[in-house]
Structure formats: structure tokens, C-alpha cells
């Protein structure tokens, strides 16, 4: 049976366990709320051009205003609508978080499986590589790369986050593979004549999949926070409105302590959304590792 089919049955089986975790459900609720906001993101600019998060400026306003009927969350220093920026931020957060996490988990799983299964020189080489990446100081490293590249695109940021995130995943998957490799069903497959490829894809991969899900969920939190930090210190993609970017604009135009309506929503949203993925991750972890489950 393939990975996809297994994933489907596994999700079905585990949902009933997940439902019992109150924190996990809370996380899922917050996550769903922001996902809904992200879906709404394209709507404002359809209503009126002035609601475009990046280039739409209210012709009658040229400074930051508090919430009003016309602008439910207020406007920024040049009269751009904060609500539409906020919604766009949700969209970016999901795109960055999920893409970066998926890429890093895919790389990490592939490397972890290979490393754990083959062992020996392959293992030594891949794990030293992982060590090197692991000890790179993440944010400063990205800052240096950003400085070297000059202008950053959001996809380069995603790629950098992903390339820095895989070693942790690879180590865990490798450890899991090392123990799975010794399980009799792997030997049973070999007796049946299975080659390395079949053992890796059919026997080992489906068994590490729960861990992969878990790390994907936890990875999203990290990616969202990293992107926000980068944008806040001005190294984000200038053509994209993210929550970090909103904070940066408020900060550089001196609104930090004067415009709570501008600062609070993106700040809270960053915390809440990364918290929600973290909570979901923890709930998944409890399912995967029954020892964490309360009796």
C-alpha cells in the first residue's frame, strides 16, 4: 500500500484521539480562524482600488488614522488600509509557513531515511552535513545572505528557512529509521526478496510518516516567526505585505507607541498563529508518543 492511502487511514484513526486534546482543538480553532482570514485576503481590493494592501492609498487620508467605518482597522502612515494589509499578512504567513515547513520536512525525511537505512559512510557524511547546518546561527546567516543578495524575494526567504530547518527533522527521522530497520518486518521483507528501494518506500517511510507530520506542524511556527523577524528588521520582500512588514512600517515611521490599532493586530496574529501550529503539533505528538498521553 502506498503512503497516500496510509496517510488517509491514519488521519481517520487519529482524529478521535486528537479530539480529546483540548489544547490541540484550541490550536486547530485558531488555525481555522486565520485560514479563513487568509481566504478573505483578495476581497478588499475587488471592492475598491484604494483597499489594495500595497499600492492602494485613500485619496482623502495622508497620515495614520484610527479605525473608522471606511477603514475598520484604521490606516497606515500614508493612508493605506490596515485591514487589507492584515488579511494579506495572513495569506503570506500561511504560504511562507507551510511551504517552508513542507520543504524542510521533505528534505529532512529523505535525508534521515537514507542516512538511517544505509548507515556507514553515507550516514557519517549526511549527518556531518546536518551538524554543520545545525550549528549555523539561523537568523544572522539569513541576514548575511540577504545583505549579499540585496533585494529579497519571499520565495528566497522560504527556501532559506527550509534549508536551515531540515537537520533537526533529519536527526529524528534517522533515529526512528535506525530502530525500525532492526524490526523483524524489515527482515521479513528482505526474506521475501525486497530490495532497498521497496524497503525504504513501502516499509520504512509509512512508519516514520507520523513523525513527519509532527515536524511539519512544529516547523510552520518557526518559519512564521523567522519570516516576521526578517521583515521587521527590514530584510523582507518589499513587494509583499506581511505582518512583520506591517510592524516594520509602524516602527520606522515612529508609530510604535502611538498607534495600538496598527501594532497590536499583526503582533498578536504572529504569536497566535505560531502558537496554534505549535499546539496542533503537541497534540499530534501526544498521539504519536503515547507515553505523553495522560492515563
Amino acid at each position: 500500500m502506498g503512503i497516500i492511502e496510509y496517510a488517509r487511514t491514519s488521519i481517520k484513526e487519529n482524529w478521535s484521539l486528537f479530539r480529546r486534546s483540548r489544547m490541540g482543538l484550541l490550536g486547530l480553532a485558531i488555525l481555522a480562524f486565520f485560514a479563513f482570514l487568509a481566504l478573505l485576503a483578495p476581497i478588499p481590493r475587488l471592492i475598491d482600488d484604494m483597499y489594495h494592501p500595497m499600492v492602494g492609498v485613500d485619496p482623502e487620508i495622508s497620515y495614520s488614522t484610527p479605525p473608522s467605518l471606511r477603514h475598520p482597522m484604521g490606516t497606515d502612515f500614508m493612508g493605506r488600509d490596515l485591514l487589507s494589509q492584515f488579511l494579506s499578512g495572513a495569506q503570506i504567513a500561511f504560504a511562507v509557513g507551510i511551504t517552508a515547513a513542507v520543504i524542510s520536512v521533505l528534505i529532512g525525511t529523505a535525508i534521515g531515511l537514507t542516512s538511517g537505512y544505509y548507515g556507514g559512510k553515507v550516514d557519517a557524511l549526511l549527518m556531518r552535513l546536518a551538524d554543520i547546518v545545525l550549528v549555523l546561527p539561523g537568523l544572522p546567516f539569513i541576514i548575511v545572505i540577504a545583505a549579499a543578495l540585496g533585494k529579497m524575494s519571499i520565495w528566497i526567504i522560504v527556501l532559506l528557512i527550509a534549508l536551515l530547518g531540515w537537520p533537526g527533522v533529519a536527526r529524528v527521522i534517522r533515529a526512528q529509521t535506525l530502530s525500525l530497520r532492526e524490526r523483524p518486518f524489515v527482515e521479513a521483507a528482505r526474506v521475501a526478496g525486497a530490495g532497498d528501494r521497496r524497503i525504504l518506500l513501502h516499509h520504512l517511510a509509512p512508519n516514520v510518516l507520523p513523525l513527519t507530520f509532527l515536524y511539519a506542524a512544529l516547523g510552520v511556527s518557526g518559519a512564521i516567526l523567522t519570516e516576521a523577524s526578517l521583515s521587521f528588521i527590514g530584510l523582507g520582500d518589499p513587494s509583499v505585505v506581511s505582518w512583520g512588514m506591517m510592524l516594520q512600517w509602524a516602527f520606522t515611521t515612529g508609530h510604535t507607541f502611538r498607534a495600538p490599532y496598527w501594532i497590536l493586530p499583526p503582533g498578536l496574529a504572529i504569536s497566535l498563529l505560531s502558537l496554534s501550529f505549535y499546539l496542533v503539533g503537541r497534540a499530534l505528538e501526544e498521539i504519536i508518543n503515547p507515553r505523553l498521553r495522560e492515563p
Binding site: 524490526r183 523483524p184 518486518f185 521479513a188 521483507a189 512508519n207
Partner: peptide, 8 residues
């Protein structure tokens, strides 16, 4: 242990 738990 000798049957893969993910296999029917």
C-alpha cells in the same frame, strides 16, 4: 513484530 503494522 514480523508483520508491518501499516500493511493489511
Amino acid at each position: 513484530e514480523s508483520l508491518n503494522p501499516r500493511f493489511t
